[in-house]
Computed example of a mutant assay.
Amino acid sequence: MVIMRILHTGDFHAGRQLRGMDRTPEIRAALSEILSIARDSKADAVLVSGDVFDTVNPSAYAEDVVYEFYLGLREAGIPSVTIAGNHDSSERLRSIRGLLKQVGAHMVTHVTPNLQDLVYPVQARDGTLLQVLAFPFLSERKLVKLADIAEGNVSQWRQKYQEGMNFFLRRMASYLRPDAVNMLMMHLTFDGSLPSGSERSFTFDITNSYTVSARMLPEALQYVALGHIHKPQQVSELPPAYYAGSIIQLDFGEAGEQKYVNLIEAEPGRPIKFQQIPLQSGKRLKTVRVKLDQIEQMDSLNAFDGLLRVIVELPAGMGTAGLKERVAKVLPSALAIEIEASQQDLKSRTAGRSNLSDVELFEQYYLERHGALPAEVKEAFLEASRWTLEGEEP
């Protein structure tokens, strides 16, 4: 029997903006690189584990980049299965899944009562069958009712979420086949996973209470393809479960991380062979901390060919007027310049903010970072606040 080769990637975040800079050209280069790897490795299928886009309303350029990738897979004769992530608009992706299916790109956007809709068989060139259980992002609000949250504590919410996920996984296990390569694809936070710090939390609780455990995974699975966490990592040995991670360093929380795609070699009923293939695309990101009296000594950093973030450590009682301009004069290539106040100043500011409303706190934050708060940004903040309180999508 010929061994199947499956490429696992995800977290493209096409349309990503970093401090006003569009990262989509770099994402396009990374997708082109992944397409070449798929061709060269003679991949039988590509699994994309969510967050194809960075926002629910991506730019036309971001859409062009993503659909160009799927067309490239079609030209190479490589089918793909993609799940919607928490950054994606499930409805938007569902609206074009019929078209994408015509080029061999299967898009799974919603969890439906008929779990058969989440099972995608993919046939290899030699006829070997790959059975993909494709489970798109499912908001915890769908599993944990707001009434339960109002009455319970965090541990109870987590238990309800895990019970719901465990139910779906047990039901989906019935679709596994002994004569096929069996894989599961999900977009969520796994127990023990280590975030890069640039992921947007999709939980009510910033400690990521809503997680899935390896104990829930069907033993017959040969590989679990995970998305959402941007740091590439293995989170389970049996069955083997991996985050492929993002395809470029998306934010300064990912500075210094090597990015990969995962290549899995598999045949029915046998352990897989796993390989990480490093990606070369995308600008390197770097954060530099500097004291006030060291600013003029940083000009050597202008030789850095990536994206630079400079944090200036400010002594107590020092003002910030003209400080960013001073750094920019020495380092015109710096993408981000931030001022870090002393602990003494922070305590003083905290005391002065105790009676401020959420919107007043946001206005003060925005003023310190960017200047006066535009009316449209304030309205977006108010809308997001209403969304959070009401538990409904905008």
Rank of each mutant, 00 (worst) to 15 (best):
A303K: 14
A303S: 15
A303T: 15
F304N: 03
F304L: 04
D305P: 02
D305L: 06
D305I: 05
G306V: 12
L307T: 02
L307R: 07
L308R: 04
R309M: 06
R309V: 01
R309T: 00
V310N: 00
I311A: 09
I311T: 03
I311G: 00
V312N: 00
V312S: 01
E313M: 09
E313W: 07
E313C: 10
E313F: 07
L314C: 08
L314H: 05
L314F: 04
L314T: 02
P315E: 05
P315T: 07
P315V: 06
A316V: 07
A316W: 08
G317Y: 12
G317D: 14
G317Q: 13
M318W: 10
M318V: 14
M318P: 06
G319D: 11
G319H: 09
T320L: 10
T320S: 14
A321P: 00
G322K: 02
G322N: 01
G322M: 01
G322I: 01
G322D: 01
L323S: 00
L323K: 00
K324F: 08
E325R: 11
E325C: 05
R326H: 09
V327G: 02
V327H: 03
V327N: 01
V327P: 00
A328G: 09
A328R: 12
A328Q: 13
K329A: 13
K329Y: 10
V330E: 00
V330C: 05
V330S: 02
L331Q: 05
P332T: 05
P332E: 03
P332S: 03
P332I: 04
A334H: 03
A334M: 07
L335M: 06
L335K: 05
L335R: 05
L335G: 03
A336K: 06
A336M: 07
I337K: 03
I337W: 04
E338I: 05
E338P: 01
E338F: 07
I339E: 04
I339S: 04
E340T: 03
A341Q: 10
A341S: 12
A341F: 13
S342V: 02
S342P: 01
S342G: 02
Q343S: 14
Q344D: 15
Q344E: 15
Q344Y: 11
D345Q: 08
D345V: 03
D345K: 06
D345S: 06
D345E: 09
L346H: 12
K347L: 13
K347N: 13
K347E: 13
S348A: 14
S348R: 14
S348G: 08
R349C: 08
R349V: 11
T350H: 12
T350V: 14
A351E: 15
A351P: 13
A351S: 15
A351R: 15
R353V: 12
R353I: 13
R353E: 15
S354H: 09
S354M: 11
N355G: 11
N355E: 14
L356V: 00
L356G: 00
L356K: 04
S357A: 10
D358W: 08
V359P: 03
V359Y: 09
E360S: 11
L361G: 07
L361R: 13
F362H: 01
F362R: 01
E363Q: 13
E363V: 09
Q364T: 14
Q364Y: 09
Y365G: 02
Y365S: 09
Y366Q: 01
L367H: 05
L367S: 08
L367V: 02
L367Y: 04
L367D: 02
E368G: 05
E368K: 12
E368R: 11
E368D: 10
E368C: 03
R369K: 15
R369W: 07
